[in-house]
């Protein structure tokens, strides 16, 4: 049986694509490089939108990337159910593309934050979190200047009521996100975005605070193999 194929998107200014591809391979999947300028998803089974500073964060984080040729393919595919995970800048792009509600703004303290962060998994009802248990606390690196999640009251209430808050910060809110939100999913559950970086926490060798990031990749690969 061939390995599940997870696309990893590279925009100009993307930083974490190599780590993301490595994490996919580490979990036993095939990482397929996807290029921002190609209108081609190469038939992948899922897509990882990595972090970085795509298009230099010009205008707003993710505002330009959202209109990249690849996104013209990815947006309808995601709406049709393709599993998509966006971390950090990838999360920002998903919000700008309106695949996820709300927006990410400058950290309340204005500082860029790079540290290990406690996160609680609030929902395992996504293809990216099924290997965790609800309420499980994990530690992942965060590194961002614009990670403060905001949404209007109605949207926020709908997210909470619908179980769409997937991750919450524990042990201190690093950026002023509403309701300590670290990550959310769309209504269908196939699109997930979070500020922390699972792809940096899959191997002890790299000095990561944990290997808790592995759960994201084992979750999606199990889902795809069983699909």
């Amino acid at each position: 049986m061939s390995a599940a194929r997870v696309g990893v998107v590279t925009f100009p200014g993307t930083l974490d694509d190599q780590d993301a591809a490595r994490a996919v391979r580490h979990a036993g999947g095939e990482a397929v490089p996807l290029w921002h300028a190609d209108r081609d998803l190469k038939g992948v089974d899922a897509v990882f939108l990595p972090g970085g500073f795509s298009y230099g964060d010009y205008l707003r984080c993710g505002a330009i990337s959202r209109f990249a040729p690849l996104m013209e393919e990815l947006i309808p595919a995601a709406r049709a159910g393709l599993p998509v995970l966006g971390t950090c800048n990838g999360f920002q792009i998903l919000c700008e593309a309106h695949l996820l509600p709300g927006a990410l703004m400058r950290n309340a303290g204005l500082h860029y934050i790079c540290r290990d962060q406690g996160i609680r998994v609030e929902s395992t009802a996504t293809p990216w979190t099924s290997d965790f248990t609800e309420g499980q606390e994990i530690v992942l690196p965060i590194k961002h200047g614009e990670g403060r999640y905001v949404a209007d009251e109605t949207t926020l209430a709908a997210l909470e009521a619908g179980g769409q808050v997937v991750f919450r910060y524990v042990g201190g809110n690093p950026n002023g996100s509403l309701d300590d939100i670290a990550g959310i999913r769309n209504e269908a559950g196939n699109v997930v975005g979070l500020m922390p970086h699972p792809e940096h926490a899959v191997e002890d060798l790299t000095g990561a605070p944990s290997t808790d990031g592995r759960g994201f990749f084992t979750s999606i690969l199990k889902k795809l193999v069983n699909a």
Binding site: M105, R106, N107, A108, G109, L110, R148, V150, D152, G176
Partner: peptide, 10 residues
């Protein structure tokens, strides 16, 4: 108006 403007505050 309802969105916190951290830069403006600074």
């Amino acid at each position: 108006p309802e969105i916190l403007d951290a830069q403006g505050q600074a």
